[in-house]
Nucleic acid binder design. Sequence first.
DNA 1: GTTAGGG
DNA 2: CCCTAAC
Length: 553
Amino acid sequence: MQTSMDSFEYNWKTPNESAKSSQREPEQVVSAASIYFSSEEEAIGVEQLFAEPEYGDIVDTLLDFNTCACSLQESYIKEFSASEPVVINNDRDAVQRGLSEEDKTREKFLDELSNGYNENHCSISCEDYLLDIELEEETPTLDVTRDVSCMGIMNLEKKLADSEQRNCGVHVLKLSDASTSSDHDALDEFEDMSTDKLLEVFRNMFGHQTSVADKQWLESHMIIGLENQEMSDKNYSFPKSSLDSSENQGVKVPPACQNLLKVSTAFASIFNFRTKPRVQHVKRREHIQWNSFKCLSSAAGEIQLDFPDKWDSKKLAKENVKCDGTKLGISEQNLKCKPSRGGFGRRYYHRGAKVSSQGLGKRNFQVGCIQNPPGLPIEERLIRREGHLSKDCRANRAYNSNIHSAEAQDDPSGTLSDQSSDNSSEDDWTIGSETRGTNQDRKHNKYWSTTEVLKLVEGVSKYGVGRWSDIKRMFFQSSVHRSPADLKDKWRNLLRASCRRLQSHRGVDAKKKHGVSRIPHEVLNRVRELAVIYPYSRKHRTRISPTASLVCS
DNA sequence: GTTAGGG
DNA sequence: CCCTAAC
């Protein structure tokens, strides 16, 4: 199991170094321990690592440390904000320099954390998960920097004394003052339980067995779990009945789901990791119970619980369901739309919906890439890429374009214009196809005017072939419908036309006859000259006929 | 984000 | 003009 423990900064300092650090400027106060889990499996693995008896002391130390940070109240922050700032800027070298026997054990523990826990301890295989669905999960954020630094302010003297007492480089932060009344209630409840019962409760809370039979250890960890459960997700009521019954009677969510929830919420806060927005990979059906997925998604607040009873991915794929969130139970307001390409980027229209083309075809059930218009039947909201449209559909579209292409022709004089500025580009466009009523696929389909062609030629003369963005910026600033890609396409067509003209005058005459070719000879000659100076790509030249390529290159 | 190239 | 891959 590969963990992301590299980001776990176990930066502890010896008391002496800490004293030096405390004299730094306040802005140098930086964060201490933080852990990022990229998956639930990692959290589970680290949890099991923490449950090892040989690491009990270290776990206590870390948990005390982080629990204090989690439990910090605003009043404490205010109260101690005027105190001397304390730097908890630690580094691993400092730990190694102050080695003791206890430190060695700690180092071993930290090494295991950083290297990833033994695969055998991981109960869930995470290698062959299908990346079916990507859910943007925004988990609660804990400001580690603020909490830890303030906590350091609060407990400076106590911390130093405690760490010296333990004769280790780790600053042990005990925050007995910060215990809440609810903690005491829960503690009383746990104290009445037998060790076996505690083990059972532990299993119910965190979803895993623990080999630790120490009653105090179990109590403390479950208190922490409860406390952080409340902190991390107040909307989710922790099933108290799970404490009383191993059968989890009366619990609304299935046990399997509880396990997932508690690992992801309670331990997340225990480890005080500042969760960053991440992509959660939801496992396919073979690897996770459907009910568990429903529960997990519900807790994440991203997915409604109107899932189908069965998820037959093959069937859905067969139906060519690409992005229909409804079939996945995604609420429409929770469907996040990746922004379509901005600036000069192209926008792709399908049935009135904007679709980002990037990545649509990679996964069958990618969520969060579309924006469906509400109020339409499911079938109508199915977004299909143009590539999946039938040939008849595309042919019909081309037919519509051809009909309107004959209705308007631009610059019929065919004379060269001196205009090369950008102030008339919008006006002298000729609309080739305006069939928006029935065909909204194409962006505008406006023919290039001679003025535009001249500007393009001028731009290529100045910048050369390939700097389409610069040409766009300098010569087509106000031409909102001419993207750099359009310029590139047009230049390619101009190049072909110029070569074709030399190749066959008959073909040009035929096109003139049909009113298609309206590019003046002078322009094409200039294009040909520029093509010599700025050769187009080799691939393109090879596509032109051998005789033409000789001339063009 | 930009560009090349196939369609 | 659309779409994708590559950078």
